[in-house]
Design a protein around this nucleic acid. Structure first.
Lengths: 166, 166
DNA sequence: TATTGTTATACTCTATAACTATA
DNA sequence: TATAGTTATAGAGTATAACAATA
């Protein structure tokens, strides 16, 4: 279909000239700064790991499985804070990439235990090395003290409230 | 379809007991801290604004239009770093909500100029107030100094490299 | 020829609901 | 009854390609 016909409506509201580039609501806003940082981090991630690499979410899942060998899908879903249905696709993909395997869980035939395969362990080792490079790149504008400060502040920000409100 | 039949494969790899909760690659990683902070920020956003509110991305677009009255869709797409096709849906939605309007751009009949409607201005005023509450909630674990430090560090991190690499 | 807005299409991520097998 | 894994489905969000109108 053709583009909508522009309505002839250009009246005297042209007073609203832009004065600054960063809007008031967003300028100096912590939420907005975090969002931009996250977008930036993802860009660098794919620059570091390549466009065809494992996604950040799947790398997180792979790492959790590595450090919690034998974890069930439900437990993994809880840790990653996604639904049980959602974890199926993650596990399916990691299994299709031959990085992990599902094994029957002893004592509960409803569940699987998840384990890294040997190729999965090799891949994770490589990913760990790449992660170091990525982390260096991500923090390249910061010195060591600033980098640690930043992590500390982020973790403090998301920590559960110690002074619960009434 | 029924669940896949678990393969009887539980051999002696049960040695891989989880030792710690946070995997090595992710523990102390800046990229991971940013991601978790972002997820946390979105959760609080919807808690503050309500589940049926304007999305963060659309709030950003609305604010940009407010502060750059008359901006074209292409220019807005560039500022938001999304595709021209993508901006159409954003603008369509904001227009359907009666928050903005498209007007014919003087001197270029291919383009629209985007403006907030009067209800859009009212809504943005309300959103600005809510944003303040949200920002306070988001930083409730930080004092003022820490909050400013955090923003400063995030902006420093994403700032373009001053020492370009060869 | 190039640009603006649009549509068609597709892919990722994630969620809910309903189902089977098992507890 | 409850839980684990699965499927079907749907809704955001985003992208590319192709197109009409216009520059």
């Amino acid at each position: 279909m053709a583009p909508r016909e522009p309505q002839p409506d250009e009246k005297g509201t042209s007073s609203g000239q832009a004065t600054q580039d960063l809007p008031d609501i967003l300028n100096g806003a912590l939420g907005y700064a975090i969002k931009r940082a996250q977008v930036h981090a993802y860009e660098l991630f794919y620059k570091s790991f390549g466009q065809d690499t494992i996604s950040p979410a799947r790398l997180t899942a792979l790492t959790f499985i590595s450090n919690n060998a034998g974890i069930t899908q439900s437990a993994l879903a809880q840790k990653l804070n996604i639904s049980r249905a959602g974890i199926v696709k993650v596990v399916d993909r990691l299994e299709a990439m031959n990085l992990i395997e599902r094994r029957a869980k002893k004592g509960d035939r409803r569940s699987y235990s998840l384990y890294l395969t040997e190729p999965g362990k090799d891949e994770l080792s490589w990913l760990a090395k790449q992660t170091q490079k990525y982390e260096t790149l991500l923090a390249s504008n910061l010195n060591d003290t600033e980098r640690e400060q930043l992590i500390t502040l982020l973790e403090k920000m998301i920590s559960p409230d110690t002074q619960p409100q009434t």
